[in-house]
Amino acid sequence: MQGVVKVNSALNMRSGPGSNYGVIGTLRNNDKVEIIKEVDGWYEIRFNGKVGYASKSYITIVN
């Protein structure tokens, strides 16, 4: 499943599904990501070869 990031500035990509996990990357508005699965309001995603987590509130699913 594919998604597009929708933010005003930047979205942190984290090592786990929560804001208490470390930041491993930064996503920008309109970045395209691969959604692997949903975990407690977060998406596990793949972006630029990295796998991490981002809040699903800021990612819109596209077909």
Rank of each mutant, 00 (worst) to 15 (best):
M1D: 07
M1Y: 15
M1W: 10
M1C: 05
M1H: 13
M1T: 13
Q2D: 09
Q2L: 15
Q2Y: 12
Q2K: 11
Q2I: 07
G3Y: 03
G3L: 03
G3Q: 02
G3D: 02
G3E: 01
G3T: 03
V4L: 13
V4T: 11
V4K: 05
V4C: 04
V4R: 04
V4S: 07
V5F: 01
V5D: 01
V5K: 01
K6D: 06
K6W: 06
K6V: 12
K6T: 15
K6F: 11
V7L: 05
V7P: 04
V7G: 10
V7F: 07
N8R: 04
N8T: 14
N8E: 11
S9T: 15
S9H: 15
S9A: 11
S9V: 11
A10V: 15
A10T: 06
A10P: 15
A10C: 05
A10H: 13
A10D: 12
A10K: 12
L11K: 12
L11W: 02
L11T: 15
L11A: 09
L11P: 03
L11M: 11
L11H: 07
N12A: 10
N12V: 11
N12M: 10
N12K: 10
N12G: 14
N12F: 13
M13K: 00
M13F: 13
M13E: 01
M13S: 02
M13C: 04
R14Y: 14
R14E: 03
R14T: 08
R14D: 01
S15Q: 10
S15L: 06
S15K: 07
S15E: 12
S15R: 07
S15W: 08
S15F: 08
P17V: 02
P17H: 02
G18Y: 02
G18H: 05
G18T: 03
G18Q: 03
G18K: 03
S19W: 10
S19P: 15
S19V: 15
S19T: 10
S19D: 13
S19G: 12
N20H: 12
N20M: 14
N20K: 15
Y21K: 02
Y21D: 03
Y21A: 04
Y21Q: 03
G22V: 11
V23L: 06
V23E: 05
V23Y: 05
V23C: 04
I24Y: 02
I24E: 04
I24D: 03
I24W: 02
I24V: 13
I24P: 01
I24N: 07
G25H: 12
G25C: 05
G25S: 10
G25F: 13
G25W: 12
T26R: 07
T26G: 04
T26Q: 08
T26A: 10
T26E: 10
L27P: 01
L27V: 10
L27Y: 01
L27G: 01
L27D: 00
R28P: 03
R28E: 14
R28M: 14
N29K: 08
N29D: 15
N30E: 10
N30H: 08
N30T: 07
N30R: 06
N30D: 09
D31L: 04
D31M: 06
D31E: 11
K32A: 07
K32C: 04
K32E: 06
K32T: 14
K32P: 12
K32W: 09
K32L: 11
K32Q: 07
V33N: 00
V33H: 01
V33M: 04
E34A: 06
E34N: 12
E34F: 12
E34M: 07
I35K: 01
I35D: 00
I35L: 06
I35G: 01
I36W: 05
I36Y: 13
I36P: 01
I36M: 09
I36V: 11
K37P: 00
K37N: 15
K37W: 05
K37E: 08
K37H: 12
E38R: 04
E38P: 05
E38V: 10
V39Y: 13
V39N: 06
V39Q: 09
V39W: 10
V39S: 07
D40W: 06
D40E: 15
D40H: 11
D40V: 07
D40M: 14
D40Y: 07
D40K: 09
G41H: 10
G41Q: 10
W42T: 02
W42R: 01
W42P: 00
W42L: 02
Y43V: 05
Y43Q: 02
Y43C: 04
Y43S: 02
E44R: 06
E44D: 03
E44V: 05
E44L: 10
I45Y: 00
I45G: 00
I45R: 00
R46Q: 12
R46L: 08
R46A: 07
R46G: 09
F47R: 06
F47V: 12
F47Y: 15
F47A: 12
F47I: 14
F47Q: 05
F47L: 07
F47K: 06
F47G: 05
N48C: 05
N48K: 11
N48F: 11
N48V: 09
N48S: 11
G49T: 12
G49W: 06
G49N: 13
G49H: 12
K50R: 14
K50P: 02
K50N: 15
K50L: 15
K50E: 09
K50Y: 07
V51P: 07
V51C: 05
V51Y: 15
V51W: 10
V51R: 10
V51S: 14
V51F: 12
G52I: 01
G52C: 03
G52T: 02
G52Q: 01
Y53C: 02
Y53T: 00
Y53K: 00
Y53P: 00
Y53W: 13
Y53L: 01
A54W: 00
A54T: 14
A54G: 07
A54H: 01
A54R: 00
A54E: 01
A54C: 04
S55I: 14
S55K: 12
S55F: 13
S55N: 13
S55V: 13
S55E: 15
K56R: 10
K56W: 05
K56Q: 12
S57N: 14
S57C: 05
Y58N: 15
Y58M: 09
Y58C: 04
Y58K: 12
Y58G: 15
Y58D: 08
Y58V: 08
I59D: 00
I59E: 00
I59R: 00
I59N: 01
I59F: 05
I59Y: 01
T60V: 14
T60H: 08
T60F: 13
T60I: 14
T60L: 10
I61V: 11
I61T: 07
I61K: 10
I61C: 04
V62G: 08
V62D: 14
V62I: 15
V62W: 06
V62E: 15
N63F: 04
N63C: 06
N63T: 15
N63E: 13
